[in-house]
Design a protein around this nucleic acid. Structure first.
Lengths: 117, 117
DNA sequence: CCCGTACTACGATGGCTATCGTACGAGCCA
DNA sequence: TGGCTCGTACGATAGCCATCGTAGTACGGG
């Protein structure tokens, strides 16, 4: 169906990224956690380094949602699929949004950890 | 006690507001538009001032989603139901989040208007 | 006391979404 | 080549969600 050497993935162009889509992608706890880890790592991460409490199929699904909504970039490197945040595009389109979401997520995680024990 | 009528509405306390819920509430185009108008008005607005392209039942549904996720405050004043942003709570929990979302929405609206003609 | 306005509750419906298991494809390595 | 790992595709399923129409409730005014 396509050239073996050029396994590529569809990404929305910067102009096709919609705020509603980004917010929707971030509104799932699992995906928000993935985004937080990607932001913390600040380099490409393979899908398999994320230990999500769901099956592989579901993991694939969540990464696709993030990619199709313009939140992450995905590239194949051998058998691995590397993920990175589209921080440049998001910051250009929606200045401060990603940072405030990440800050908010960190604060909430801290609050919940303190409350839950 | 601002209780003009006996009818009251359930609101989550500040500590019960969750980032995922707020992002979910804002990820719907209609609800995002409502929030933008509420932020622009900066005072209580009745449900009926919003001319949404959906039925009244659906309008009620969207306002409830915003309220149950802690984005807006609703109180009855006679037959009208007044809506206002919970800006104080949101800013305290997630500093900068609401502003960056509103800015992003305004920018995107401008971009889309310029592109669409 | 009745009526009109504003909003709600309920039931239905179609579509999306999160989840899974199984079967498969692409690349690496011995 | 054969097997191993990583990830995908597909089909199924259950739950949520946006939407509607209709019928109903609450409140203020005549």
């Amino acid at each position: 169906m396509q050239n073996p050497t050029s396994r590529s993935l569809e990404h929305p162009g910067r102009d096709a990224i919609r705020l509603e889509g980004v917010l929707h992608a971030l509104s799932d706890p699992l995906r928000l956690e993935v985004v937080r880890e990607l932001a913390a790592a600040d380099c490409e991460q393979s899908c398999s380094v994320f230990e999500l409490p769901v099956s592989k199929s579901t993991t694939t699904h969540h990464f696709r949602v993030l990619r199709e909504n313009g939140v992450i970039r995905q590239i194949y490197r051998g058998t691995a699929k590397m993920n990175s945040l589209r921080r440049d595009d998001l910051d250009a389109l929606f200045p401060g949004l990603l940072d405030s979401v990440l800050t908010a997520a960190a604060r909430q995680a801290g609050r919940l950890a303190a409350a839950g024990g």
